[in-house]
Amino acid sequence: MPSTKAIKNLRNQAALEQGWRCYYCQLPMWDASPKEFMNRYGMPPGLTKRFQCTAEHLNARCNGGEDVAANIVAACLFCNATRHRTKHPLDATKHASVVRSRMAKGKWHPPQVIAALGNRGEPPA
């Protein structure tokens, strides 16, 4: 079983490749500095926490997924946790489809998030 450091390295590699945007909702994430994220987007701590970068296994470990770069993407804490909250989680592709559909309708993150991040996570002008 890989170390926590190895998973963190795989997560950071994925986050860099994804431009530090969540694999599912495509909004920006933070790793080391929630305060910097809060200041940049004017978001309160409770909402900021949901955008912490996590390692997401495309094929879950419980289904035989491995801790390798091809199976790890970076996802915000909210999207990752929401995927695994049910007894029978959707596979990553189906979950991404659900998230993006709900994002398009403004029904995934609270309205305050969209107000702070805009549709693409850019700070308001």
Rank of each mutant, 00 (worst) to 15 (best):
E36S: 15
R21G: 05
P44Q: 08
I72L: 04
C62S: 15
K94D: 14
A81N: 11
P89Y: 09
C79F: 03
K35Y: 05
P45R: 15
E56G: 01
Q112V: 10
S101K: 11
P28L: 05
M38H: 05
C62A: 13
A69V: 13
C76K: 02
A69P: 04
Y24G: 02
A32G: 15
K49A: 14
K105A: 15
A125Q: 13
G121A: 07
I7E: 04
I72R: 01
G121D: 02
K35V: 10
T54R: 02
L16Q: 09
A60G: 04
T86K: 11
S97H: 13
P111A: 11
A116S: 11
M43A: 03
C53W: 00
Q52E: 14
A81R: 12
F37W: 03
N12I: 00
A75T: 06
W20P: 00
E36Q: 14
C22Y: 01
Q52F: 06
M29Q: 04
N119T: 11
V98S: 05
A55E: 02
A70D: 14
A60R: 12
S3E: 08
P28D: 04
C22Q: 03
V99T: 04
D31Q: 13
Q18N: 07
V73F: 02
A6E: 13
P28R: 03
A116V: 05
A75N: 05
L47D: 09
K105Y: 11
M1K: 10
A92E: 00
D91S: 08
G64D: 04
A125D: 10
A125C: 09
T86W: 10
R85Y: 11
V68K: 15
R21D: 05
E56L: 03
L90N: 10
T48N: 01
Y23Q: 06
W108L: 09
N71P: 05
P124M: 10
K5H: 10
N59Q: 14
G42F: 07
T86D: 12
N39P: 00
R100Y: 08
R85D: 15
E56H: 10
A74L: 08
V99S: 02
L58M: 07
K87H: 13
Y23A: 06
S33F: 06
D67K: 00
E56D: 14
Y24W: 07
G19L: 06
C79G: 04
R21C: 09
P2E: 03
